[in-house]
Amino acid sequence: MKKLTLLFVLLAVLLVFTGTVMAQDKPYIAIVSKGFQHQFWQAVRQGAKQAAEDYDVEITYEGPESETQVANQIDMLQTAVDKNPDALVFAALDTQAALPLIEEVDSKGIPIIAFDSGIDSDIPVTTAATDNYVASSYAADKMAELIGYQGKVAAIVQDQTSLTGRKRRDGFLDRIKNSYPEIEIVDVQYGGGDHLKSTDLAKSIIESNPDLDGFFGANEGSAVGIVNAIMELGRDDIATIGFDSGSILLDAIRNGIIDGAITQNPVGIGYRAVEAAVKAIKGEELPEMIDTGFYYYNKRNMDSEILQPLLYK
């Protein structure tokens, strides 16, 4: 009992100490993300920390262990709200579940900044996320360059229902149609981001178009499908560009099976979100969307200092 009391007293002293250290007059921005352990979310955190240093603000960064833990995220959000932050930076796992709390925050006049896939509501003052349309257009430019501005290309996309899926598809297709008249789009198929389904689709596209020159996979699963198809059919002469990362995709690029891929910039997402929060606290005007940028990576640059932290396995 004595030992326990002593332990608690020690803990108390420690906590009061950290409490006073933390209680500075800097503006406080609470960040609640959709994940924590995953490298993508740690990269977002790194960007947020950098922005906090640059703008001299206090931040906390929390997220549930997995993207299924909706209730944990709501608890984290509730606690963040109780700390009375000057701004809230939030990426909802489920907007419906979080809506009452978001509305409460909004009614207190605390600005809310959405990031990544954001919040499906018009309450947030802005959303810091990848502009998938622009990123995919760049993939089209790279593709044209790889196949010599003429030939036949196809694409595997995750779905035609999600906003991300549509933007990545349209960014690629529109750019090819509008800027490269010598390139023909022979097929676009949807594999739900599923490795196996995407593999079957990619194989049938290659079988029916043996003279295919280029292939675009609009997310990790779609790109992995193309990688599998190319390996099974022995067709690594087809120029291929993927999207996102993951160990299979990284290996395929390293081994020259596919040419390169686009990656989002999670560090940029964290940085821009906190930057936007600082501006919102000051009452500055913000655009509805903040493009957090993207990178094209291939065998040559994937180990560089800038890209390493962005590529998750």
Binding site: F8, A12, L15, V16, G19, D75, T79, D82, N84
Partner: peptide, 21 residues
């Protein structure tokens, strides 16, 4: 004891809204 410690350490702990949370 935990409640007392947290209340001293942070002004945001011992609030009605946080207790409800």
């Amino acid at each position: 004891m935990m409640i007392i410690v947290f209340s001293i350490a942070s002004p945001h702990f011992a609030t009605f809204s946080n207790f409800i949370g």
